[in-house]
Structures are given as structure tokens and as C-alpha cells.
Computed example of a mutant assay.
Amino acid sequence: MTSASEPGPLAPPAARPWPPILLAAIVAAAVAASYLAPLSWPGQDDPMAHVAGLSLGAAGLVLMAWAAWTLKRHGTTIRPDAAADVLVTDGPYRFRRNPIYLAHALILLGLAEITHNIWFVILAAAYIPLVTWLAVLPEERHLEARFGDAYRGYKAQTRRWI
């Protein structure tokens, strides 16, 4: 029998690593859609628009690196299909519960600006409910089963997305 501070083995939150699968599928779909059903870019083609769009993408890359480094520093997995060893609540996780998935959405918006492909924006909007359903909700159930009241307290004080 394990104590509350020493959680025992538990099944992983998901059988597949849905977030990177979804991200790759959305990038491929946005590229394909730009050829099959091209839509004009509604944004301005000026330096400030480029700075704003590229800043979103850069912020996503920085956020993803910070979140991955934080998980590594705590000795727990970054894999969404593996059981968590530690409840991480610092670094970017002190602000949001899912910084890597938020980073993915920001990166997709940055790709939209770089390519002027509006499909990245449209599909970034689809990414959020899909990753919530396929990854976030199972991860939350896993973390609650694994860490109990500690996770429930963290969840009550830290937003999921924005």
C-alpha cells in the first residue's frame, strides 16, 4: 500500500500521444486545404501585422520549451501518453495547467502569419476542443487519480487554458 505522498503505479492517461498527432494532422490539413480550398489572407501585409503574428508563434515556441524544461527538471515525462511521476505546479504550470497545448495553438497562429494561410487559424480553433477531449480531460482524470487532493487544489487555483 502506498501513501498519499507516494503514489503507486497507475495506468497512463491515454493509449496514444494525441497532442503531437493532432498538431501534425492540423499542419498537414492546413497545407492541403490551402491548395484544395484556398482562402484569401484577411490580415494586413504590413510590418506591425508581421511582428504581431510572428510574436505569437515565437511565444508559443518559448512557452513549449519552458514547459518541457520544467517537466524535465522535475524528472517527469513530457509524453501525453505516459503516467506522470510528479505533479508539476511551477514554471509555466503555475499560470496554466496545459502550457504545451496552449503553445501548440500559438505556434499554429504564428505559422498562419508566416505562410499567410488562414487555414492554420481555422484549424487552430479546432485544435483546442479536440485536444481538450482527447488529451486534457483524460490527463485531468489521471492526475486526479494519481495525486488526489493536491491535484484538485492545483486545478481549483490554475486555469486550464486562458
Rank of each mutant, 00 (worst) to 15 (best):
W18V: 06
P19A: 08
P20L: 08
P20T: 06
P20I: 10
L22Q: 08
L22F: 14
L22S: 02
L23D: 00
A25R: 00
V27I: 15
V27G: 04
A28Q: 08
S34V: 01
S34L: 01
Y35E: 13
P42G: 12
Q44F: 13
Q44L: 13
D45G: 09
D45T: 14
M48L: 15
H50Y: 12
H50M: 10
V51N: 03
V51S: 07
A52R: 07
A52F: 14
G53D: 12
G53R: 02
G53H: 03
L54M: 13
S55H: 05
S55N: 01
L56Y: 04
G57K: 05
A58F: 13
A59W: 05
G60E: 06
L63H: 01
M64S: 12
M64L: 10
A67P: 10
T70R: 11
L71C: 11
K72R: 15
K72I: 14
R73F: 09
H74E: 09
G75T: 10
R79S: 13
D81Y: 04
D81K: 09
D81L: 08
D85L: 09
D85Y: 03
V86F: 04
V86A: 05
T89W: 01
D90V: 12
D90W: 00
D90C: 12
P92R: 03
R94W: 00
F95N: 06
F95I: 11
R96L: 11
P99L: 10
P99I: 07
Y101S: 06
A105T: 12
L106W: 07
I107G: 04
I107M: 14
L108V: 08
G110Q: 01
G110C: 06
A112V: 01
A112K: 02
E113H: 10
I114W: 11
I114M: 14
I114V: 15
T115E: 04
N117T: 09
F120W: 05
A125N: 03
P129T: 10
